[in-house]
């Protein structure tokens, strides 16, 4: 179809572009605009334009750099674990074993529980000496009365485990649907040639799933910090900022210290870094989908 013949179609897609612009581009631009101002809600007077001053302050903020490290830990470790466990689960669930239908539903449960409730569940589970973990420890003769949330490394580990717990089912479901599109004849041929279960998946499933793995990884990275409610309920960003990612730091600055300009600066900086990291992959995914559509 020629370009000129597309002209008439603009009137149909324009409303979608306008709506997308209003709900995505406008807030981003507004947030960027706020980050260039000095806004003090606790003092009289209008906002002042300060250029990149807030960004310079951010670069000198030790709490921000701590949050940046925590953010990296809370993105890459859980996403890697979700991909690995999700793949394994998908491969197991693909097998037509007894009860796999019910197992599929059971595996999905953590994904449908609201994040704040997940946070509460984990908080109750690890209550020192009285939660489910202490009980489990008792069953196996181990002393699990430690307060895991009072130590930086264990608190971070708990958040990571909770993140993996809530994110993995969705990943497994996506891999499973991709895996089911791979023809059974390939596995059959491999089996006849003497390939083991592991070899079949290593040489057939993984190459076939490669595009899905890249897509899921990119989207999980972008969504990784959606565990904000879990952090809010479970640790409040502590102890000592060990579970305080940048979106939590932005929340604290905006809603507790009423520094909306600084909160906007944190969010814009984070947005830029995430886009720089993920843009090549997003472009690749878009190109591949366009190619497939043709």
């Amino acid at each position: 179809m020629s370009v000129s013949s597309n002209k008439g179609l603009w009137s149909f897609i324009l409303p979608t572009f306008l709506t997308l612009g209003a709900i995505t581009v406008t807030p981003i631009l507004a947030t960027f605009g706020i980050s260039l101002l000095y806004i003090n809600l606790t003092m009289p007077g209008p906002p002042m334009f300060v250029g990149l001053e807030n960004y310079a302050e951010l670069m000198a903020d030790s709490r921000f750099w701590n949050s940046a490290v925590v953010t990296a830990e809370l993105i890459f470790i859980p996403v890697a674990a979700q991909i690995a466990i999700g793949l394994l689960l998908a491969m197991v669930l693909k097998e037509k074993l007894a009860g796999t239908r019910w197992m599929r539903m059971a595996f999905l449960l953590p994904a449908v529980i609201p994040p704040a409730v997940s946070g509460l569940i984990w908080k109750l589970f690890i209550v020192p000496g009285a939660g489910g973990l202490a009980w489990l420890g008792g069953v196996f003769g181990a002393d699990m009365s430690l307060d895991l949330l009072s130590m930086p490394s264990s608190a971070l580990a708990v958040v990571i485990v909770a993140s993996v717990w809530t994110g993995t089912p969705f990943v497994a479901l996506l891999f499973l649907s991709s895996l089911e599109s791979v023809g059974d004849d390939q596995y059959e041929a491999a089996r006849i040639d003497g390939a083991s279960w592991f070899q079949s998946h290593w040489h057939i499933s993984l190459p076939e799933l490669r595009p899905a793995i890249i897509t899921v990884t990119v989207f999980r990275i972008l969504e990784a910090l959606a565990i904000f409610p879990i952090i809010f309920v479970l640790t409040g960003g502590g102890p000592a900022g060990s579970t305080e990612p940048v979106n939590y730091l932005a929340y604290v600055n905006g809603f507790e210290y009423l520094r909306v300009d600084y909160a906007a600066t944190i969010i814009v900086s984070f947005f830029i870094v995430m886009m720089a990291l993920c843009a090549p992959f997003l472009v690749g995914i878009a190109r591949r989908e366009a190619k497939e559509a043709r």
Binding site: R63, S150, M151, P152, G238, P239, A240, G241, S242, V252, E256, Y257
Partner: peptide
């Protein structure tokens, strides 16, 4: 709050 964070960094 900033000092509070510093205190927690010390005790942990």
């Amino acid at each position: 709050d900033r000092v509070g964070l510093a205190l927690q960094e010390v005790v942990t």
